[in-house]
């Protein structure tokens, strides 16, 4: 059943597969983001309560969703590297961490810029904001650990274990922060309700979300390729590859 997957355990096959995938993902993401962002900025209606500041939503929510799904993807990759000894899996975990950190930072920054006009402050110790901040710390820890090792094989495994420990802890952290927040703070902040979104707001959001998701895929492909060639630099196919100029 899983036999079709086996060739991809070979670094060379995966390298070329990622190389083939890269332009498709990149161009599709560029197209979707162009259409989606122009739609979001120019044509989508303003929110009846929040006015034009609602347009931040179209980057804030996609990056917040992606920041969590990338962590999950990283942990799954780390698990398959540790349990089934898939050696390429920890390469993909290492490739994903910086991307996740960037999207977490975007979610936090846009959240702050949205919170200032809506809530009157750049930052509130709201449960969702706080757990997003802790998620950023977890990402930075994984990246720092990965950079601390010279041997990238070892670095990938160590960072993978940390990612797994983090993924077990994330629900606990999220729960504890939510609980802490309700205990320490009254409902001074009127949270955004979740009314059914109008379709003219929904479609630009879907386009932006898919665009950002494909962008993550494209960047991950390049980082994955980098990880593969640095880990296999003694192999003849890598040597032929780097001395010939074409990709």
């Amino acid at each position: 059943m899983w036999k079709w997957l086996h060739p991809y355990a070979n670094p060379e096959v995966s390298y070329h597969f990622a190389g083939k995938l890269k332009p498709w993902l990149g161009w599709a993401s560029a197209l979707l983001l162009t259409v989606g962002l122009i739609w979001a900025l120019l044509f989508a209606p303003a929110d009846y309560q929040q006015g034009e500041s609602f347009r931040i939503f179209y980057i804030h929510v996609p990056s917040a969703i992606l920041s969590m799904s990338i962590y999950l993807a990283m942990a799954i990759a780390a698990l398959s590297s540790l349990v089934w000894q898939v050696r390429l899996a920890d390469a993909s975990a290492a490739a994903l961490a910086p991307i996740g950190a960037v999207f977490t930072a975007i979610a936090l920054l846009t959240g702050a810029a949205w919170g200032k006009p809506m809530w009157g402050t750049w930052w509130v110790w709201d449960a969702r904001l706080t757990s997003e901040l802790i998620l950023l710390f977890l990402y930075l820890g994984v990246i720092a650990l990965h950079n601390a090792f010279d041997d990238k094989q070892m670095a990938g495994k160590a960072a993978g274990i940390l990612a797994l420990v983090g993924v077990i802890n994330l629900p606990i952290i999220k729960y504890s922060v939510e609980w802490w927040n309700t205990l320490h703070q009254g409902a001074t902040v009127s949270k955004l309700g979740a009314p059914a979104m109008a379709s003219e707001m929904y479609w630009p959001f879907v386009l932006c979300f898919l665009g950002f998701g494909l962008l993550v895929g494209a960047v991950a492909c390049v980082r994955f390729q980098t990880e593969i060639i640095t880990r296999n630099k003694m192999r003849p196919w890598v040597r032929n590859l780097v001395t010939s100029e074409v990709n």
Partner: peptide
Amino acid sequence: IGAALTVGVKKGGVLLSLIVLPLYIPVLI
């Protein structure tokens, strides 16, 4: 866990705190 991950790293002290402190948050709360 953090100490075991950083035991092979030369200057692991600060790195260790970076890794471990976020995981301590639930206990603290």
